[in-house]
Design a protein around this nucleic acid. Structure first.
Lengths: 344, 344
DNA sequence: TTGTACGCGTTATCAT
DNA sequence: ATGATAACGCGTACAA
């Protein structure tokens, strides 16, 4: 156990601890060589804990996400990590989208980290109050909480993306367009639903109640929603699925029910995936640079930390774009989908 | 800014700091109610930094992985996080499989964390020396370094899995079986190659030099390797790909070259993937519980931390199993793969 | 049960 | 340029 302190080094060299400290801080000292040597021989490492206590900073930035297993959040974390710099590190908190864990994590984070980058699982949250209460710098990424405007954030062009997706379906001639949406309580859920409605409105297509399903961004949720859609008397001819996991679930439902894409139904998803182009047919999606979202969030955090500019929140958005592959086509003349074939 | 200390609470209540400290530690004190009240009114939070300095512990466990973007490592991290408990947190380090970053991270980690769970990018590493030097508890997960036996580890049944995979191909009647392997310098790379050779030996099939390609566990690497295989005068009729990313790359190469699976070539991968069953055809793989690997590693770490049992390293292995889908079939009579059609 | 006082390892201030 | 020392906030041995 390396319990060698700055005092040991000082004794070894025959100077005071202050001199060693100065040397470590880059100041010019007389016997720098002796010190360098002593440090390496004694294998001295400054105590992070002591430094934290003195400085009040930890050099650690937390990033809290609902599910690190979701490739999208993994990309965000990777982006954030890539921008953290040499003198700081990233503390990961995976909340499983469980509210209690989020809150507990936040309180545990206080004092252990200099700031937190967070993708809150819901907007209905007291997080901002919590943050302002403790004065912990925060940057929201991908999602915000109720009065999230008071804090910096890096979101995606959710509404635009959803409009793009829905418009793409419309341009193929579809009108029976369903949406499997995320929870309305989460930023991307709400915004993408808005975009869908906006596009439908522009095209003067009425949104059928049964065609809009508010699900939960999980694979199971997407799976269930798609089954519900297939069980309808007149199923949709196209569906826009609001995130990658739900798309996965929906595709499984479609595959199980032996509904062919895009002949019987057109599918477009939000967020790309490595395998999306290997599926048959390759899936058309709205894509964006999640890694960039993460790195931008980290940059905002670092700026905030050095400027102390918590009072001037910055809001940035990463762009989205359509990646056209093979899962969208015009609707058939005959709208007879074998809806009840296998779908429950 | 919450700069309220234990002293403030003590003054408020009219007792000494020791009493407050005792209250916080769960001891019985006279005016517990007053203290509780004062703490909540003053919004007092004990300083983690000061506690760290006193106790020598941080309550943080690091987990360093090559690539958090790889679903496999994401699952490991998620598993580890799930087992960390209420009084500790996880610090993530993503090294990008870059040796220098690994080493730098390790030195930065010292003093900031109580222990590190690590998936080293290569076995050719001085990490163990580094660890023993500083006495930082470590548990290896998925991979080890040179003298990794001296430290606890949670590996997978790599050799068994590779034998299973190769045997599956052999049982279908293949003999021209190629392997796209990982780097021999990494534990899973080496062990899986061993398993392949073992299975081939058992079946008395000679391993053709050109059929064994040592790649690098990346998508690009798998892609290139598969192209090389396809460009051979007599290409293999089956291929075992040693990890998920390389499988992805190989599938892209196959798809690009319009080689049909399993008619023209059988494919089996190592490590499952959410989308593996949606690809056409669904991909047969060797699977294992990565999340379990992560949680076991964390459990070993926590045990080590409480026991102080660093001297009794434990080595555990998670099992593997074959997930049969549709990417393997008997070889054709005519072995004419359109090898040079589009490959390259 | 409670209070006093010291130590944890650094850095910053103040003299020298 | 250097040395002595206070201070960071907390836990705890010791005395009461």
């Amino acid at each position: 156990m390396s319990t060698v302190t700055i005092t040991d080094v000082a004794k070894r060299v025959g100077v005071s601890v202050a001199t060693i400290s100065r040397y470590l801080s880059g100041f010019t000292v007389r016997n720098a060589e002796d010190i360098r040597e002593a440090i390496s021989e004694l294998n001295y490492r400054p105590s992070a804990a002591a430094r934290n206590l003195k400085s009040g900073r930890t050099g650690i930035i937390a990033i809290v996400v609902p599910d690190i297993t979701n490739p999208f959040f993994a990309a965000i974390v990777e982006g954030a990590e890539s921008a953290v710099g040499d003198d700081r590190m990233v503390l990961l908190v995976n909340t499983g989208a469980i509210r209690e864990r989020e809150e507990k994590a936040l309180s545990q984070l206080f004092g252990r980290v200099d700031g937190v980058i967070m993708a809150p699982s819901t907007e209905e949250q007291h997080a901002p109050a919590f943050f302002s209460q403790f004065g912990l710098p925060i940057v929201f990424v991908d999602r915000v909480t109720q009065d999230g405007e008071r804090f910096s954030s890096v979101l995606a062009e959710n509404a635009k993306g959803a409009e793009l997706a829905t418009g793409h379906l419309i341009s193929h001639g579809h009108s029976k367009i369903a949406m499997i949406s995320g929870p309305n309580s989460a930023t991307p859920g709400k915004k993408r639903a808005d975009g869908y409605r906006q596009a439908m409105k522009k095209a003067k297509i009425e949104v059928i109640h049964d065609f809009f399903i508010e699900s939960d961004f999980t694979e199971a949720g997407g799976n269930l929603a798609m089954k519900q859609l297939l069980a309808l008397d007149t199923p949709p001819t196209a569906v826009f699925v609001a995130n990658n996991l739900m798309t996965l679930g929906a595709l499984h439902a479609l595959s199980e029910a032996e509904v062919s894409i895009p002949q019987e139904i057109s599918v477009i998803g939000f967020d790309d995936h490595d395998f999306a182009d290997l599926i048959n047919p390759p899936i058309t999606v709205i894509s964006r640079d999640a890694r960039l979202q993460g790195s931008q969030a980290m940059e905002l955090m670092i700026k905030q930390l050095s400027d102390g500019s918590a009072s001037h929140p910055e809001h940035s958005m990463v762009d989205v774009h359509l990646v056209e592959r093979g899962s969208c086509a015009p609707p058939r003349e005959s709208q007879k989908i074998r809806s009840n074939k296998k779908a429950r």
